[in-house]
Design a protein around this nucleic acid. Structure first.
Lengths: 229, 229, 229, 229
DNA sequence: TATGAATGAGTTTTCATTCAT
DNA sequence: TATGAATGAAAACTCATTCAT
């Protein structure tokens, strides 16, 4: 899962840094344990999305999960750790946002549009969780750092793609690729956060305007040198 | 003060909605009272910026101000109210960010650049407070709503300006002015938040890339129809 | 207060190290505050002596003092700190155990007897507290260290006195004064702990045997060279 | 094992009361069971000595033993019971401290010295455990009582020996044998606790001074009426 | 206006103990 | 015998808020 909010122009998804070091410790051994843990994670997501991270009490989570407080501590050390687990569990859904794999020689404008749509669709599907991540990042430095690292990974990938387009003469050479990548990715993710949380903004409208701003912003042209679109 | 983050293309600053309903109650009557209140607000800003909104305790603030807890309640009803007062006190500095007043018939690209620079300079000057505002908005619905209203006011003003440029044939007519305004303003404010808090990013570099993306994004041309810049 | 348990042969009492660093912090400003604090300390002594240090709950102490838990934390940071305050309050009673000030040229045997009696009387008067101190020292390294420092101070003072007697030819020269001091002081304090806590052992009997063992142990003689007593 | 700390003047060791009523229940029947139990006891000693009795958690012990918590309860009812088992296992080493068996008509001074040395050597070998026993006795009344009974047994045996010496005119008749026994034994054990736990005090030095104080204290003479030594 | 003592609800966290597998 | 998941009572501690002086 990522709030990097960006048109991911190709590239493998596994460059993305892992969410947290929940490595090995307190991993349930038995099937029963795994089930309980999963129940807790699901309950946590429900409660967090309903009450917010700060307001949520551990006892709310265990009540929702139908187990005791003690059981919570069998699997997690605290609220932050189970939140990390919630993110981890949601990650798959966010990492594979159904983005159509597009060949490099395709129309770059089409790739950008597809990427933006994919991102926004995935975002909307997990809107509450994204907003939650936003809140937690504002409150907990560890998650803030996580978010930063993820954002950087996405921005760098996109920056490489922009640089390629510049080299081929298909994008404005007067723009710093990395900074532009940050700016445009940030634009998309900020729009998603502002318009897709709570309100039911028209997603296609967002795709249209954001894609247009990406393409215009980079002065993207197709192979023939004509302005894209 | 605003986190709307945007090139404010002209327009008076006083369209901006007020921060909070600190309506009249508990306003100090004596001169000594006014002094105490001001001391508390200054102390609160210091403590909030140092410890964060959530972590800061009222007792920290009164300790910093050198007065008792009781005195705090003479002037404020709680943490949110004194935070509003902190914003209010900082507002002047944020509302007049030294932005050069530019005539409407000037080069629009220059106006955008000047606006962006003015915003970023003001942002950097109050970076900690801006980050704080960000945190509080993530946590307190009242401040979230305040932020939203301010963002909308700025976006609508910018949208009007974009529409004007479109009507004059100086901007891409295929773009929804309001959405573009949200997107581009969001891009700037997000960049500011990411790059100007903590790290000492090169401000002119930011101005350059953001302005370029604004201009490119809108396909801005000068009066003669030539691409701006 | 001290568990050094020893015949204190002359010497000022103020060489003794202080109990704890309760210095200045959370000291009540008003008379009312001082009263509350004192009430808490008295309540703590009662509860500690009744329930033991480990068993005692802070809520028991505040209940006994007739105040809220919050009030407790107005004055103390935790159980250990209020225990230190209890010791501090009891210290005066233990430091001036009515020991008759005896001139140096007096009969040393009489001095030792008086010292032992004074120590045992003071001990018995505070027997529960002494036992408590014993328990806490077994449990909390900070108090263990305190006890050790106090013991050393007493032992060293007594060692000096023993060395003087040896120089005058009134004590067995073949004994290491410091080690003997530790051993004999330890003997007295251990006896006190074993026989004066709970059971009502005959105090004079203890004085007799302990004094005899001191005198014999050091082969104490009077000025004429005759065995003391 | 005993903390009676005393020169044991002759006499069989088995007068000593047993440690605890681990009577028959939960005794392992199979060989595997016996092995598991022994592993737990060893682990408990390790953990207790490392963390202290109060701090040690059962889960620490089972972790150290490499078995599950459930297994613990197969053999013990709780922390106190396994601590008793630890003492029991260590008892042999403490009961046979390599003390040379000395005939009754030997030089009593030599016997006392040998006894003291034997005690201190055994104490030092098990210093951590002795300190532990001390801590537990301060905390758990059952172990306090155990310690008391053991102390009494030793003191009474020594008292009989002292009385014999008095009857033979070899010791100060003006001393109550039982009280002196308590006092001198306590002196030795207190010294051991203070000087042999943690710090590496010179054992022979301790033997020397303690033996001297015993002999002097009792005004011990040899058969010819000459002062011992 | 200023003070600071008093309050106590509210949450987290620990860990011995049970018990189904 | 061995396992380890589940339990929940118990206690510490925080801090916004009130109020008498």
């Amino acid at each position: 899962m990522s709030d990097a909010g960006a048109a991911r122009i190709g590239g493998p998804a596994d460059e993305v840094p892992p969410i947290a070091d929940t490595s090995g410790i307190r991993e349930p051994t038995t099937r029963r344990g795994a089930r309980t843990r999963a129940t807790l994670v699901a309950a946590a997501r429900t409660v967090f999305e309903r009450d917010g991270y700060l307001t949520a009490r551990l006892s709310d989570i265990t009540a929702e999960a139908g187990c005791s407080i003690g059981t919570f501590y069998t699997y997690f050390t605290g609220k932050d750790e189970i939140f990390a687990a919630v993110l981890e569990a949601a990650q798959d859904d966010m990492l594979h946002p159904g983005m159509p794999h597009v060949a490099d020689d395709d129309d770059p404008a089409a790739v950008i549009e597809a990427s933006n749509r994919a991102y926004l669709v995935a975002f909307r599907r997990n809107a509450k969780l994204m907003a939650l991540m936003h809140q937690v990042a504002a409150v907990d430095p560890a998650f803030r750092e996580l978010r930063r690292r993820r954002g950087r990974a996405f921005a760098e990938r996109n920056a490489r793609r922009i640089a390629e387009l510049q080299q081929r003469g298909q994008a404005d050479p007067g723009i710093d690729p990395l900074q532009a990548s940050y700016a445009l990715s940030g634009m998309v993710s900020r729009m998603a956060m502002d318009q897709l949380v709570g309100e039911g903004a028209d997603l296609e409208e967002l795709v249209t305007v954001l894609t247009r701003l990406w393409i215009n912003g980079l002065r993207l042209t197709d192979r023939s040198g004509e302005p894209a679109r």
